[in-house]
Amino acid sequence: MSAFWENAFVASAARYSVVILCMILFLAIFELVTSYKNWQEIKQGNFAVAMATGGKVFGIANVFRFSIQHNDTILESVSWGAFGFLLLLIGYFIFEFLTPTYKIDEEIGNDNRAVGFLSMVLSIGLSFIIGASII
């Protein structure tokens, strides 16, 4: 049975499946902390929400990319990926805190594309910093 799990195709499929499940969970958590409903807003054409959500998807995937690259087991990869997600989430709250003159969530919910773009770039940028720190 160990030969089965050591097969490169099986290992890749296992990591892929676990990351997809983690991404669904992490996006659901992001959905809980935002004042708008991501998928409903995207369905209605809110481009700012689409950019912000796309940045979160890219950020999570990029953190997992580094996590998989630097760890041997799925458990280690998931642990570092979850830690990276937590740091992305903290970064989101810091972004909200550093803009006291307006609420990020409200601006994105109102389709302020400049704020949505900045949120996307912030998620992507932080994912590279977080990923580079994964050992």
Score class of each variant (00 low, 15 high):
residue 51 M to G: 00
residue 52 A to H: 08
residue 53 T to W: 03
residue 54 G to V: 01
residue 54 G to I: 02
residue 56 K to V: 05
residue 56 K to W: 03
residue 56 K to G: 09
residue 57 V to C: 04
residue 57 V to R: 00
residue 59 G to K: 07
residue 60 I to T: 03
residue 60 I to N: 01
residue 61 A to P: 00
residue 62 N to T: 13
residue 62 N to H: 14
residue 62 N to K: 11
residue 63 V to A: 06
residue 63 V to C: 05
residue 63 V to E: 06
residue 64 F to T: 06
residue 64 F to A: 02
residue 65 R to W: 14
residue 65 R to A: 12
residue 66 F to C: 00
residue 67 S to K: 05
residue 67 S to W: 10
residue 68 I to D: 08
residue 68 I to S: 03
residue 69 Q to T: 03
residue 69 Q to K: 06
residue 69 Q to C: 02
residue 70 H to W: 06
residue 71 N to E: 00
residue 71 N to P: 07
residue 71 N to S: 11
residue 72 D to Y: 07
residue 73 T to G: 04
residue 73 T to F: 00
residue 74 I to E: 03
residue 75 L to A: 11
residue 75 L to W: 08
residue 75 L to D: 01
residue 77 S to K: 07
residue 77 S to I: 13
residue 78 V to L: 06
residue 78 V to W: 00
residue 78 V to Y: 01
residue 78 V to S: 01
residue 79 S to T: 08
residue 79 S to H: 05
residue 79 S to A: 13
residue 79 S to M: 12
residue 80 W to N: 00
residue 81 G to H: 02
residue 81 G to P: 06
residue 81 G to C: 03
residue 82 A to W: 05
residue 84 G to M: 08
residue 85 F to S: 10
residue 86 L to M: 13
residue 87 L to G: 02
residue 88 L to E: 10
residue 88 L to K: 12
residue 89 L to H: 13
residue 90 I to Y: 15
residue 90 I to C: 10
residue 91 G to V: 14
residue 92 Y to Q: 08
residue 92 Y to A: 12
residue 93 F to A: 07
residue 93 F to G: 07
residue 94 I to E: 09
residue 94 I to L: 15
residue 95 F to R: 02
residue 95 F to V: 05
residue 95 F to A: 05
residue 96 E to Q: 12
residue 97 F to H: 14
residue 97 F to E: 12
residue 99 T to S: 13
residue 99 T to V: 14
residue 99 T to P: 10
residue 100 P to V: 12
residue 100 P to A: 09
residue 101 T to A: 09
residue 102 Y to V: 09
residue 103 K to R: 14
residue 103 K to Y: 09
residue 104 I to P: 14
residue 105 D to S: 10
residue 105 D to F: 01
residue 106 E to K: 08
residue 106 E to D: 07
residue 107 E to I: 10
residue 109 G to I: 12
residue 110 N to P: 02
residue 110 N to Q: 12
residue 110 N to L: 06
residue 111 D to L: 01
residue 113 R to D: 01
residue 113 R to I: 09
residue 114 A to P: 01
residue 115 V to W: 00
residue 115 V to K: 04
residue 115 V to A: 02
residue 116 G to Q: 00
residue 117 F to H: 05
residue 117 F to S: 13
residue 117 F to Q: 11
residue 118 L to F: 13
residue 118 L to V: 07
residue 119 S to I: 08
residue 120 M to E: 03
residue 121 V to I: 15
residue 123 S to K: 03
residue 124 I to F: 14
